[in-house]
Design a protein around this nucleic acid. Structure first.
Length: 304
DNA sequence: ATGGACACCTGTGGGC
DNA sequence: TGCCCACAGGTGTCCA
């Protein structure tokens, strides 16, 4: 479900409450949500209880909370929301949320809160992972609240293969475009490849391609550098606009940490618009089955 | 290198 | 009302 704008909305909501908070208790209601945790459930709980949260960092669709004891331990709580994950920040008296899988109780400035990891499909999950220095020694991800220092330049091992995203201060658009020019694969497949550029999923790929008038299966190598620059300009603008609107919600699946929906769905021009007229030319938007999912595009504006 | 199939899951909505 | 099918914002792995 969530792509970069939705995950960033969660990160931005979480950061002020959880930075410098102390974890008091952890409840694992659904062990499958720890599928990617290398240890046992008991070990997961033990690694968290009594620790301090140093910050909240995001790269692409991955989030992590570096941990302290209280000094940095070199470990982080890594989270991915999968297709249906949510992180809700509640006070303990707030009614239970359906499909809650893990609850992390913490105390921040003397007030008790719960970090509730809610996930319908259990494709998302939490894990404790080791941090290691980034290759270039620069900030590992997006965390504007924190100035450069030791742990911000470290990345969880399980996230190291994820490329920087377009909102990352160290994102190198020129290098990404150079790489794309060497690929014969279709442009949408490349946009969704988190090892090339991260954060883009099915919604924002379709939206960016629509705005750039590119057919999704067009081979990367035959798109000009100028056109790819235009595409990445649109990717950036769309991601920024979506973050500003709190992400895209069209059902109960995406919520911010307060349980509220984002409203970027009102701005969509391609994704989920099957059968509706293209906002540019009036031709009906089409959906094609593609890679076990759907691709939405205007057959007139986005020619093969 | 590339792409397809599939595994991991639950829930919802449409058609009959 | 029930049943079956299609479909859903992702990632990782295996195999031709």
């Amino acid at each position: 479900m969530p792509e970069l704008p939705e995950v960033e909305t969660v990160r931005a909501g979480l950061a002020p409450a959880i930075t410098n908070a102390n974890i008091t208790k952890v409840e694992v209601l659904e062990p499958r949500s720890l599928r990617r945790h290398p240890g046992t459930v008991a070990n997961f709980v033990a690694e968290l209880e009594g620790k301090r949260v140093l910050g909240c960092v995001r790269r692409g669709k991955f989030l992590w909370l570096p941990l302290g004891n209280p000094e940095p331990t070199g470990l982080a709580l890594v989270g991915h929301l999968g297709m249906s994950g949510q992180i809700l920040l509640r006070t303990p008296i707030f009614e239970p949320d359906k499909l809650t899988r893990v609850i992390i109780h913490f105390e921040s400035a003397g007030v008790a809160y719960e970090f509730r990891f809610v996930d319908q499909r259990i494709f998302g999950g939490l894990a404790i992972d080791h941090l290691s220095a980034t290759e270039d020694g620069r900030s590992a991800g997006f965390c504007p609240e924190i100035a450069e220092d030791g742990w911000i330049n470290s990345i969880p091992q399980s996230v190291a293969h994820i490329a920087r995203d377009p909102l990352d201060a160290n994102f190198d658009r020129t290098a990404v475009i150079r790489k794309l020019r060497t690929k014969n694969t279709g442009i949408k497949r490349a946009l969704l490849d988190q090892g090339i550029v991260s954060g883009i999923g099915n919604i924002y790929a379709d939206e960016s391609l629509w705005r750039s008038k590119l057919y999704y299966d067009r081979p990367c190598s035959e798109i000009s550098v100028a056109k790819l620059n235009e595409l990445f300009e649109h990717v950036y603008e769309i991601l920024v606009a979506a973050v500003k609107q709190g992400g895209t919600s069209f059902d109960e699946q995406y919520k911010n940490v307060n349980g509220e929906s984002g409203y970027f769905s009102q701005t969509l021009n391609a994704y989920g618009q099957t059968g509706l007229p293209c906002a540019r030319c009036g031709k009906l938007i089409r959906r094609e089955a593609w890679a076990n999912r759907g691709s939405h595009f205007c057959p007139k504006c986005q020619r093969r």
